[in-house]
């Protein structure tokens, strides 16, 4: 008797009580957070820890030599990076992930992101929606590179985040790939814009994205 009542009550609740649904925006926010967490967890390290050698006095002199040259290489490397656009782009990508300042405008809607750049830049970067192709838009950000403000578009591919830097430039040039500090970069010029895509996603997937962006 009582069990029948319980059964009927269950039926009533199951049929009529509200089942709240998570919004797509919540799902996107969680996916982006996971990509960010995962990106910071697997950040490539540029230098490996250095161990003090234990082979006696002769070794100390030798080690000092190594230390001096290591420092010189490090300084030279930084110097080279500072004056180098690829290094600057990679640093900007890493900084955006680290500082939790990935986007100024967080939206998967390109009709929100594109107008956001208006008034902040003297040009309007193309912002295609590539969610159907496996590269959902996460948002956009204003970045500062080589003494100028540039548009940074953020896309996600699975649990990887990709920064695409765009600024006006004349002439067309084919895509060139490079690797910097363990990150893949692709650069090209097209339609009056220079593009740089930077990510720890593998090179072929980054190329797929760059082909979608044209």
């Amino acid at each position: 008797m009582n069990e029948d009542d319980d059964h009927e009550l269950s039926g009533l609740i199951r049929a009529h009580a509200t089942r709240y649904q998570a919004s797509p925006a919540l799902e996107t926010a969680i996916q982006t957070e996971i990509a960010l967490q995962s990106a910071s967890a697997r950040r490539p390290v540029s230098s490996s820890p250095w161990r003090w050698p234990v082979w006696g006095y002769a070794g100390v002199g030798f080690a000092c030599g190594i230390v001096v040259s290591a420092i010189m290489m490090l300084v030279a490397g930084q110097y080279r990076d500072a004056g180098n656009l690829e290094g600057e782009l990679t640093n900007s990508h890493v900084r955006a992930l680290m500082a939790n300042h990935l986007t100024d405008v967080a939206s998967s809607d390109n009709h929100t992101v594109k107008p956001w750049f208006q008034g902040k830049l003297s040009y309007s970067p193309p912002v295609p929606d590539l969610a159907a192709q496996g590269f959902p838009l996460v948002g956009g950000r204003l970045d500062y590179l080589s003494s100028r403000a540039v548009a940074a578009l953020v896309y996600r591919h699975n649990d990887h985040l990709i920064n695409v830097f765009v600024w006006p430039d004349s002439g067309d040039s084919p895509k060139t790939q490079s690797v910097r500090q363990g990150y893949n970069l692709i650069q090209w010029r097209e339609g009056g814009m220079q593009y740089w895509a930077v990510s720890d996603v593998n090179a072929s997937e980054l190329l797929t994205l760059s082909n979608l962006l044209h």
Binding site: Q31, I34, A35, Q37, S38, R42, N158, D159
Partner: peptide, 9 residues
Amino acid sequence: MTSARDFEK
């Protein structure tokens, strides 16, 4: 390898 993808799944 990537636990993030496993997590999402």
